[in-house]
């Protein structure tokens, strides 16, 4: 399988990048590590005339701790660098966990945090070569009006499987985007549409970096991933949990699911539910049940949907239990 023809650009600065984007009149596709884009191009799911690699823009490839203790992560920081940077970092442990389970070592060497967040949604009826797709009329995501995963559905249910989104969202990460020479920050959970066919609402914005707020006292986080094999696989269910412990009680909690919907699922009503309650296994079970009820995977990726839902509950329980049990140690 060969790549389609395209023009390749590799600007060395944000300014040149801006100029290029302007020149292409929005007809260019931005590429970082390419681990997700190149296979899609080979399958002819996307055939950009112009490809702009942002890998040569030096300022995008660093992780910085700012004076105000905020952490800035450049869009082209490799997943493997995240693994190393966040190793043994208790508040941001979820980032380490998620990064460490992305793809394989080869993928982690190439893939970037920006690419991981902005990866397209996937579906077993969509991520296929043109030749394979000839056997089926186009689905919503291919410009048609059929969904094979959810029969009779009027919209696309392609699943979002970017591991890194879940930890960044529970840690209240923001993305900084370049819109027509302006830099705009958005909470990460706001960049998703929930529509599998068009998963992002960032328009022509170019993701430049991520900003993580200074970790508050008592912040702990973790990420659990369900996949069939020990490596390689995308999350077919993933749970990130961030908890703020204060006076031996959960002061704040944020849970985000991945791999069960067309966008990350931020669990609702959870903070109010636990307020002032005593930390028992029963409470953790109840939280897991709430999470379970908000996970609605469909048959569009590996594994059985009931098992995926079950694993959401199981992993939520384990994640919270581990965090709390480990807190005093």
């Amino acid at each position: 399988m060969q790549l389609p023809h395209f023009k390749y650009h590799a600007p060395r600065s944000i300014n040149t990048l801006n100029a290029l984007i302007e020149k292409m009149k929005g007809q260019a596709i931005i590429m970082a590590g390419g681990t997700e884009l190149i296979p899609r191009m080979k399958m002819r799911l996307i055939q950009p005339e112009n490809l702009i690699s942002i890998l040569k823009i030096k300022e995008l490839e660093h992780i910085k701790i700012k004076k105000d203790k905020k952490i800035e992560i450049g869009a082209t920081v490799r997943i493997d660098n995240l693994v190393n940077f966040f190793k043994e970092n208790r508040p941001f442990n979820a980032i380490f966990q998620a990064a460490n389970m992305v793809g394989s070592q080869q993928i982690r060497n190439m893939a970037t945090i920006g690419g991981n967040i902005l990866q397209n949604t996937r579906c077993k009826y969509y991520n296929r070569t043109l030749q394979w797709q000839n056997i089926m009329p186009p689905c919503h995501k291919r410009g048609g009006n059929i969904c094979y995963a959810v029969k009779n559905s009027k919209r696309c249910f392609a699943v979002y499987q970017g591991d890194m989104a879940a930890p960044l969202i529970v840690l209240n990460g923001k993305g900084e985007f370049l819109f027509d020479k302006n830099f705009i920050q958005k909470p990460l959970e706001d960049i998703f549409t929930g529509n599998g066919a068009m998963p992002f609402n960032v328009g022509k914005g170019v993701l430049i970096k991520f900003i993580l707020p200074q970790p508050e006292d008592g912040l702990i986080s973790t990420y659990k991933k369900y996949r069939i094999r020990d490596g390689m696989d995308f999350p077919i269910a993933g749970v990130a949990v961030a908890i703020k412990i204060k006076n031996k009680k959960i002061d704040d909690i944020k849970i985000c699911l991945i791999g069960v919907s067309s966008a990350p699922v931020v669990i609702k009503d959870i903070k109010d539910f636990i307020s002032e309650k005593k930390l028992t296994d029963k409470l953790i079970h109840e939280i897991s049940e709430i999470v379970y009820n908000q996970a609605h995977p469909v048959e569009n990726t590996d594994g059985d949907i009931n098992k995926r839902r079950y694993m959401i509950k199981q992993m939520t329980f384990e994640a919270i239990k581990e965090l709390i049990d480990g807190y005093d140690k």
Partner: peptide
């Protein structure tokens, strides 16, 4: 008659660590 997992990503051949 349609194969739904036609790749090494989706056909779950054990990997080296397994």
């Amino acid at each position: 008659g349609i194969t739904l997992n036609p790749s090494f990503l989706e056909y779950k051949l054990p990997i080296a660590t397994e």
